[in-house]
Structure formats: structure tokens, C-alpha cells
Nucleic acid binder design. Structure first.
Lengths: 139, 139
DNA sequence: GATAATTAAATTGAGTACAATTAAATTGTA
DNA sequence: TACAATTTAATTGTACTCAATTTAATTATC
């Protein structure tokens, strides 16, 4: 038995997680290019399409991102006219992001994204469900 | 049935993959800090500890990274004295990375990393194995 | 009510990550 | 042998990602 067995790349769990995440994210490039969005911008829009109005803090929590990452992403989305930023009247510390009409309109185009990506992942529906559950167990 | 069901964050497979990968990578910060390595530098060292000598091209293939990512990482590891870079005599295009004595010595310290991280992932051995298989099916 | 502690964003700095391009070396082919 | 095509690294430019710090607003405590 090799003393260093635990240091072999093939025995790492984090590595395939990291590699698979990047691999699938790359599959989003083509469909998201049609919407002029990056992957990170896309998941912010997913949340906005569900909530219309949400604080930066809540976005951070939902997306497991910190303000250092989110601040420039929100800035870019505002520049594209997809959302508007405003301070809360009740608590001036809070930044509230609101979906604009242009942002809402983009939702229609986005319907093409999941089908385009789904075909690239060669897992059965059953396997995808299992993977999904295990990942949320980690989170 | 909601027309936009496929755009809900909870119905994405890539998102938990992306979030879980980053979440586990963060758990490496503390143990890797003791080795003065980043996660990316660590996985390069994992390969070097297995191979001693390897080309940049092979590293790219094994780690699913491209030269734009790897070049600065190899430069940093060389600066730390953990590896040496040299051009192949047979084919001057190839960059060969060789483990140094200091790099080899670091392997002992690295034995502490997997146990430190393993405790943070709350999956059973069985679940981890299932996850592992599904991830490699994607890759 | 003044002040300490906490909270939310923004900023800074280091390190990826990757598409696209460039430069140099090698290989294939007429 | 010339020369086109391919291959490998490095470079460039854009965009994350996060730790640590800063700033401003709010809450808790005296």
C-alpha cells in the first residue's frame, strides 16, 4: 500500500468537481453568447427572472458569491440596461436590484439556453437527479 | 406548468456543480496555506509528485487547463523552487517540468491536506464514490 | 443620547480561467 | 528540398473569485 495514495490525482474528489464544473460552464459559452451574457451574469439574471426585485445581499446568499465578485457583475448588467440599482429607503446600506423591461424581455431569448446545454451533458435523467442531490448535500 | 420552469435556479444542474466546486476549494485554503500553495498550484504538484517529469502539454491535458492558465502557475512554482522548467532536446516546442528536491520534500507536508479537507465534506464513502463516477462521466 | 459593535457594499490586490492571437518548432506533402 | 499545415507555449485582454480592508449605515449597550 502506497503511503502517498491519498495524493494521487485520481483519488481526489474535489478535482473532478472542479474540472466538470468548468467543462460544463464552457458549454454555456455558445448559447449565452447569443444573449451577450457570461455565465456569472446569467445566473444573476436567473435569480432576477424569478424575483424581479432583490437585494445584493440576497443574491450573494443564493449564488454563494461575495460582494467582491458580485459588485462588478451587477455593474456590467446595469450598463447593459438589464437591471437597475437603488438603495433601500428603509436601510441605506442595502442595494436593491430591479429587473428592467429589457431584462424581462431577455427571459424569452433565454429559454433557448437550457435545451442547448442539456444535450452536451451525457447523463441520464436518473443520473442527473442523483448528482443534483449529492451536490446540494455538499452545499 | 410554468413555461419558464427550465430557467429556475433550482432546476439548473451546472449551478450546484459550480457552487459546490468553489465551496470545497475554499476548504483547501487553510491546509494549503501551510504549504504556501494555491489550489491550482496544488493540483499541479499532485501531478508532479506522481510523475517527477512531465511536459506542460501533458499537464494541460491531465488538469483540463489551457496554457494561458498554466503558464503563470508554472512560473510561480518555479519561483518557489518546487520545479524546474526546460525545453525538450528532441522537440524544442515542449516545455518539460521537473520536480526539485524542495518540491519532493513538500510531498511529506502535503500528506496532511487530504485528511484536513475530507472532514469538511459531509458525504458517506458510498456517496462520494457515486459522485466521483458521475463527475468522470461528464468529463 | 453617545458610543461600541455589527452589517452591507465597495475597493484593493493576488491569482486564476479562457478565448484569441502570436511566435517558434516540427511535420506533412508536393 | 521548399513550403504549407500543424503543434506547443507564451502573450494579450476580459472577466471572474475571493481574502482582507474600508466606508457608511444601522443596531445594541451603556
Amino acid at each position: 500500500m502506497d503511503k502517498y495514495e491519498s495524493l494521487k490525482l485520481e483519488n481526489q474528489l474535489c478535482f473532478p468537481l472542479y474540472a466538470a464544473a468548468r467543462s460544463i460552464m464552457k458549454e454555456y459559452n455558445a448559447p449565452l453568447g447569443a444573449l451577450d451574457l457570461t455565465y456569472t451574469q446569467y445566473i444573476v439574471m436567473l435569480v432576477l427572472w424569478e424575483h424581479e426585485r432583490i437585494t445584493s445581499k440576497q443574491l450573494c446568499t443564493l449564488l454563494y458569491l461575495d460582494s467582491g465578485t458580485l459588485t462588478p457583475v451587477l455593474k456590467a448588467l446595469e450598463k447593459k440596461g438589464l437591471l437597475k440599482k437603488a438603495r433601500s429607503k428603509e436601510d441605506e446600506r442595502l442595494l436593491i436590484c430591479t429587473l428592467t423591461d429589457a431584462g424581462r424581455a431577455l427571459k424569452e431569448k433565454a429559454l433557448a439556453v437550457p435545451p442547448a446545454v442539456g444535450q452536451c451533458v451525457n447523463l441520464s435523467a436518473e443520473e442527473a437527479r442523483t448528482l443534483y442531490k449529492l451536490l446540494y448535500k455538499i452545499l
